[in-house]
Amino acid sequence: MSTSTQHLDLGDPRALADLETFLGRARRANPDGAVRLQVVGGFVLVTVAVLEGSGLLGEGTVLGLRVAPVRPDGTDDAVDATVSFASLADRLARREASAGSSVLAVPPTTVRASWSGLTPPRDGWEPVGRLSSETVDAVAREGISQVAQGTPDGAGGHAVTALRRRVWGAMTDTVPPVAAGLAFGAHVLGFTAPGAEASVSTNGRWTRLSTARGHVLVR
Rank of each mutant, 00 (worst) to 15 (best):
S87R: 11
L65S: 07
V106G: 08
N203P: 01
D153K: 08
S116K: 01
S210H: 10
L56A: 08
V44I: 06
W168H: 02
L104H: 09
H187T: 01
D12M: 03
Q38H: 05
V139P: 00
L209Q: 09
T47N: 02
G157Y: 04
A155S: 15
D80R: 13
A78Q: 14
S84D: 15
V79E: 07
E20V: 04
D76S: 12
D18A: 04
A193K: 07
L19V: 06
D32Q: 11
G41M: 04
L65A: 06
A198W: 01
L56D: 12
L10M: 14
D12S: 12
D12Q: 08
V39M: 12
A138H: 06
W206T: 10
L88A: 08
R208M: 14
R112V: 14
G55M: 10
F184Q: 09
G124Y: 00
S210F: 00
G204T: 02
A179P: 15
G41L: 12
S102K: 02
S210A: 09
A198E: 04
G143M: 01
E96L: 14
H7F: 04
A180F: 00
E20F: 10
R130F: 10
V188Y: 07
L45R: 13
Q146Y: 08
P107V: 09
G169T: 06
P194Q: 11
D137Q: 04
R166M: 07
T174P: 00
D18Y: 06
F85H: 12
V167A: 04
A198I: 10
E134G: 12
G33W: 14
S145T: 13
R141M: 10
V188N: 10
A26F: 12
T174L: 13
S101Q: 08
V35P: 05
V188G: 13
A180T: 07
R25T: 08
A68P: 09
V70L: 05
V111C: 07
R165A: 12
A155G: 08
V40S: 02
L131Y: 01
L8M: 14
A170Y: 01
A113L: 14
D9M: 15
V216E: 04
